[in-house]
C-alpha cells in the first residue's frame, strides 16, 4: 500500500475547480449574453442571472421575459449536467487541467417550463437537481427564485442527450 498522500493545499483545489467551471461557462456565448454566472460551493452550483433591462418582457409591469426565464433555467440545467460529468474528472488523482474542449455539452431533447409567478426586475437564482444521469439520457429538474428561496418563480424539467466520451 502506498502511503496516504497529504491533502492538497486548499488554494490549489479551489483554483483547479474554479478554472474548470470558468472554462466550461466561458465557452458558451449565450450564457455571456444573458449575463449568467455560477457560484460554486464544493460541487454545488447556483446560477445567478443579474437583472438587466434587456431581460424585460413586459415593460409596463415590469417583468422578466418568459423567454429569458426559460433560457436561464435551461442554461442552469445544461451547465449542472456538464458539471456533474466533469467533476469526477477534475477530482481524479493526477488529473491535470481539464481542457474545456473535452467537455462536450449535453443536448436538450425536451424542456418544460412552469411559470409560477412573474419574474421581478431583480436578480434571479437557480439550481439544477439531476433526477437521473444515465450514459445516454439524463433527466433534470431546475428551480429559479428571486428574493425567497421557498417561493420559486419558475421551475422546469427536461430530458437531455448525454455527450459520448468516445467521440
Amino acid at each position: 500500500m502506498a502511503p496516504k498522500k497529504r491533502p492538497e493545499p486548499v488554494q490549489v483545489v479551489k483554483q483547479r475547480r474554479d478554472e474548470a467551471l470558468a472554462a466550461l461557462v466561458a465557452g458558451v456565448p449565450y450564457i455571456s449574453y444573458l449575463g449568467v454566472t455560477f457560484d460554486r460551493r464544493g460541487d454545488e452550483l447556483t446560477a445567478v442571472m443579474p437583472f438587466d433591462e434587456k431581460l424585460i418582457g413586459n415593460p409596463i409591469l415590469p417583468a422578466l421575459h418568459g423567454g429569458a426565464t426559460a433560457a436561464f433555467l435551461e442554461v442552469t440545467a445544461i451547465i449542472g449536467l456538464s458539471w456533474a460529468i466533469l467533476w469526477p474528472r477534475i477530482e481524479a488523482e493526477g488529473a491535470p487541467d481539464v481542457a474545456p474542449s473535452l467537455t462536450r455539452l449535453p443536448k436538450t431533447i425536451d424542456f418544460t417550463v412552469d411559470y409560477l409567478r412573474s419574474g421581478l426586475p431583480r436578480d434571479a437564482y437557480a439550481r439544477a437537481q439531476i433526477s437521473r444521469l444515465g450514459r445516454r439520457y439524463a433527466s433534470v429538474h431546475v428551480e429559479a427564485w428571486q428574493d425567497n428561496r421557498e417561493r420559486a418563480f419558475a421551475q422546469a424539467t427536461g430530458h437531455f442527450l448525454m455527450p459520448r466520451n468516445d467521440g
Binding site: H65, G66, G67, A71, L105
Partner: peptide, 27 residues
C-alpha cells in the same frame, strides 16, 4: 448571430434563444 450560440464547437444556437422566440410568438 454569435451571441446566441449555445455550442461553441458547432455554432449551433442555444435552446434558450429558441425558447425565447417560441414563448414570444406563442404569446
Amino acid at each position: 448571430r454569435d451571441a446566441l450560440v449555445g455550442d461553441p464547437e458547432t455554432g449551433v444556437i442555444h435552446g434558450g434563444a429558441v425558447s425565447a422566440l417560441m414563448d414570444t410568438c406563442c404569446g
